[in-house]
Amino acid sequence: MFSSIGSHTDQDIADEIVDLFALVHEEREGAPPPAQPFEGLFLASSYADAPLKKPSIVLAEAARTKPVQEVARWAVRCVGYQLLERGGVTAMKEVYDRVIEASPRAANWLDHRWSGIGGWIS
């Protein structure tokens, strides 16, 4: 169920996070979702049709009403934990810096999603 960053570069991961944020922003703005919102996105594709493990009622309702936002949130948190294992907060910071160069709004969104991972404070 969890997506894997595998051997993807920091830049690949940063680009993917910016793309996920764009989908989240579209959903928040009420744009109709694309038929395959996660097609081509390696981080979120494994989440698209997978139920959350033991979701609470609140999480299940959020996933039903805001599927893109919930999938993206879980995907980037998973990436945060994997980067933490790969190289600690330093590895997370390197990807975050690339995201902020591409999109400060996406970086702000990411910052909140990573809060609490390895001491990351938003």
Rank of each mutant, 00 (worst) to 15 (best):
I100Y: 07
L83G: 01
K54T: 12
F21I: 06
G6A: 09
G116P: 02
I13W: 09
R77W: 05
E26S: 15
M1R: 06
K54D: 15
V95G: 10
P104H: 13
L83C: 02
D111I: 00
A62P: 01
S46W: 04
E61T: 13
E26C: 10
V18H: 07
V99R: 13
F38K: 07
G6P: 02
A107M: 10
W120S: 01
A102I: 07
S115I: 00
F42M: 15
L59I: 04
L20Q: 10
P104Q: 13
E85A: 14
Q82R: 05
A91R: 13
P37V: 11
A75C: 06
D111M: 06
A44G: 14
L110D: 01
A31L: 08
E70F: 05
S3I: 02
D12S: 11
T65F: 04
D10A: 02
W120L: 02
M1P: 11
L43I: 11
I100A: 14
S3E: 07
A106M: 10
S46P: 10
I17V: 15
A60G: 05
A31C: 15
R73T: 14
P33A: 14
T65E: 08
R77Q: 15
R28V: 07
L84S: 02
W120G: 08
I57A: 14
E39P: 00
K54A: 13
A44I: 09
A91T: 11
S115W: 06
E26G: 15
P32I: 09
P67V: 04
S7E: 08
Q36P: 03
R113D: 12
I117R: 04
